[in-house]
Design a protein around this nucleic acid. Structure first.
Ligand code: MN
Ligand code: MN
Ligand code: MN
Ligand code: MN
Lengths: 219, 219
DNA sequence: ATCTTTTTTTAGATTTGTCTAAAATAAAAT
DNA sequence: ATTTTATTTTAGACAAATCTAAAAAAAGAT
């Protein structure tokens, strides 16, 4: 079963939406891929024909086992390439997403196997997201959203929910990186913003919107 | 000026044909790209509109300055990726062509610059072909075809004319590699075949057809 | 010089992926 | 329960890249 670049982009988007929401809607996918709802419907028919998802019109849809397996392979490629770009070619973590979006579509099992070995079979990408292994298994990470992280407990930043340059440059400005130490000092009910301490030094004020994108684990 | 993958494949093929033959014909390009003559004509119109080549119908064609510059950049990407695959990911030299054929189309100036630096700005790819630098300049190599190489002179294999797996596996069988020492012992007028010595040890008999694909420089 | 063959171009069709506008359905509001 | 709004699907069009078959032009042969 080989997929076009376009098909790969769709199943990856659907996979990431269904992890959060269960069932996925046409408009959600259109928003993520920045395309029209009509184009999404076209692709849904095609992917249904290829037996990669469960779909009845007007009822929503989700990937089946085969679809999930293929989506995990695209995610694997994407995250391995991101790791390569940052670790080996010294890109900044906010510069890699667009290029990985292209590289993930290169068709060569040998390439991705060798790349994985060369990188030392990394478990997480530069944004802290888990990299599926060759069988599609994801390493477990006991991370939780910063919004739900308890007060006055030492945590470590493990992942960032979005890779938009806007968010990443804000995080860089606040010196919040993957691996940074973090402690929630105070929460403001008015706007659900937080005061946090970073690396036992700087303090920063985090909007609810931003906190939603930051994942943390207890130390 | 950005090109589609297809356009890049065409200008690269045309460039390599015009280096040998001067003017290029529709059928030559069709043969190299394994497509129909009609498809080549379609693309010629498109590339003419984009002002990348000189073309009048039925009269043949060749790239202009801008076309050559872009072709060199595709060649640069292709050969840098091949170098990466062999040197870093430990592919064999006869396994890289197809993957590089895909990787050469990744659009990112930063990527190719960083890759070049990471590889140490290599001058030649695993097949001995020169890699254009960032300005499009090719390193000079005083190589000549094995057919024209003088007798009893020590030479070194510098390049192979084709990357077809058929040729490369034959070369591997005869232990002819890039960098191998070579000496022409005898030539047979009947079929223009050669007896040669490799690395001052093994002898091998080389058909005219094969010799045409082997490039050598004097030591 | 005319005929034949080869090469090249045109004409028209197909596939993939996309779009806009309109129609159908579902969800929300009154 | 209607009406209104939002979502989703369909219909029809378009651009890119390809193909086959036919026509046109050039090259080669007699
Ligand atoms: Mn992509
Ligand atoms: Mn990532
Ligand atoms: Mn290519
Ligand atoms: Mn090469």
């Amino acid at each position: 079963m080989s997929l076009t670049s376009s098909e790969e982009n769709y199943i990856k988007a659907i996979f990431q939406l269904q992890v959060k929401d269960g069932m996925v809607s046409t408009n959600e996918v259109a928003a993520v891929l920045q395309t029209s709802a009509a184009s999404v419907t076209d692709m849904l028919k095609k992917l249904k024909t290829k037996k990669l998802l469960v779909y009845e019109k007007y009822k929503g849809f989700k990937l089946n086992g085969e679809g999930r397996k293929l989506a995990l392979m695209v995610l694997r490629k994407h995250r391995l390439w991101e790791t390569f770009l940052v670790k080996i070619l010294h890109f900044n973590w906010d510069e890699v997403h667009e290029v990985a979006e292209q590289l993930e579509h290169i068709q060569s099992q040998q390439l991705i196997d060798h790349l994985d070995d060369f990188l030392g079979n990394p478990a997480f990408d530069p944004h802290g997201d888990p990299i599926p292994d060759a069988t599609g298994k994801m390493p477990f990470q006991s991370q939780m959203n910063l919004n739900k992280f308890p007060f006055q407990i030492n945590g470590e930043v493990t992942a960032v929910g979005s890779q938009s340059p806007d968010i990443l440059s804000l995080l860089e400005h606040k010196k919040i990186t993957i691996g940074a130490r973090i402690k929630v000092l105070q929460r403001f009910a008015f706007d659900n913003s937080f005061e946090i301490q970073i690396n036992n030094k700087e303090q920063a004020h985090i909007s609810a919107q931003l906190a939603e994108q930051i994942y943390v684990k207890k130390l």
